[in-house]
């Protein structure tokens, strides 16, 4: 049993550190993602969001720190324990990671075929319904290489959602989609989350649109969670870096307009 404030958390991260060669990518991350809610991690490109997500789904091992998933300490678990934790996961990789030797149908059916005892007819129904929801109706026989990046992304989202995982991890579900599609993907994530009471951890660059479906927002900067709270709390926070990030500027960036920067002679 974890302490009281952890009971309602799907994922708790404590003082997570990880370095690659000479780069301290995660530098003491603390985060608690509440159950049955959507937690969105935002931050500048290269700040370590994907690396953090890959620690949460236990693909990478931290140098130090703890990850507690659904009340069990994943950093202390053995291989079987880790597999049992992973059965709860649905994951969308930043680049999709669809199996390119399989059709879209087989990709989306994969978690059901491998991990459930559903009949073929049930699987077929679930997959086709899922594909319709992500707007890929009639595409089930295509192969990943025959689809656009946005279509691959939606197919990968369908694969992450199809087995109704308890914990859903999404790395940039809307990057590469047009605004209308982004909106419908957001709606789909929200609807699925509410219908099946999922805990969602999402990395997104789609600010501020993504705030509409987020319950909690974590702003990641330089390997730490610099700001965490509800959307209202975070957007109202008097945090210079985050306000600049929202305004579309990297922290510490030259504040002159771009035209002026380019026009300035290098001498």
């Amino acid at each position: 049993m974890e302490s009281a404030n952890h009971d309602s958390a799907a994922i708790v991260v404590e003082e997570l550190r990880r370095r690659f060669d000479h780069q301290q990518v995660l530098d003491g991350v603390n985060l608690a993602c509440p159950s049955d809610h959507i937690t969105t991690i935002v931050g500048p490109s290269g700040c370590g969001k994907t690396v953090l997500l890959k620690h949460l789904n236990l693909l990478l091992r931290p140098d130090s720190g703890r990850i507690i998933i659904d009340g069990s300490d994943a950093t202390a678990a053995n291989a079987r324990g880790i597999d049992r934790i992973r059965e709860k996961f649905g994951m969308l990789f930043q680049a999709g990671a669809l199996f390119d030797s399989m059709s879209v149908f087989d990709n989306v059916a994969f978690p059901l075929v491998e991990k459930t005892h559903l009949s073929r007819a049930e699987i077929r129904d679930r997959v086709l319904e899922m594909l319709e929801q992500v707007g890929l109706k009639g595409m089930e026989h295509k192969y990943p290489s025959e689809m656009s990046g946005g279509m691959q992304k939606r197919a990968a989202l369908a694969r992450a959602l199809v087995h109704r995982p308890k914990i859903l991890m999404l790395d940039e579900p809307t990057t590469g989609l047009d605004p209308a599609r982004s909106h419908s993907v957001h709606e789909l994530i929200r609807a699925t989350q509410q219908k099946f009471k999922l805990s969602v951890v999402m990395v997104s660059h789609d600010v501020p649109q993504v705030f509409q479906i987020s319950d909690r927002v974590a702003y990641m900067h330089a390997g730490k969670i610099a700001l965490f709270g509800s959307v209202a709390e975070v957007t109202a926070a008097d945090h210079h870096d985050f306000q600049q990030f929202l305004a579309g500027k990297a922290a510490g960036e030259d504040e002159r307009p771009l035209s002026q920067v380019i026009a300035t002679p290098g001498r």
Partner: peptide, 17 residues
């Protein structure tokens, strides 16, 4: 090698396969 490069092997791992 291509499956490794495009994270397909990671995708299997995360599915507990």
């Amino acid at each position: 090698g291509a499956m490794q490069a495009t994270e397909q092997i990671d995708a299997l791992t995360v599915m507990a396969i």
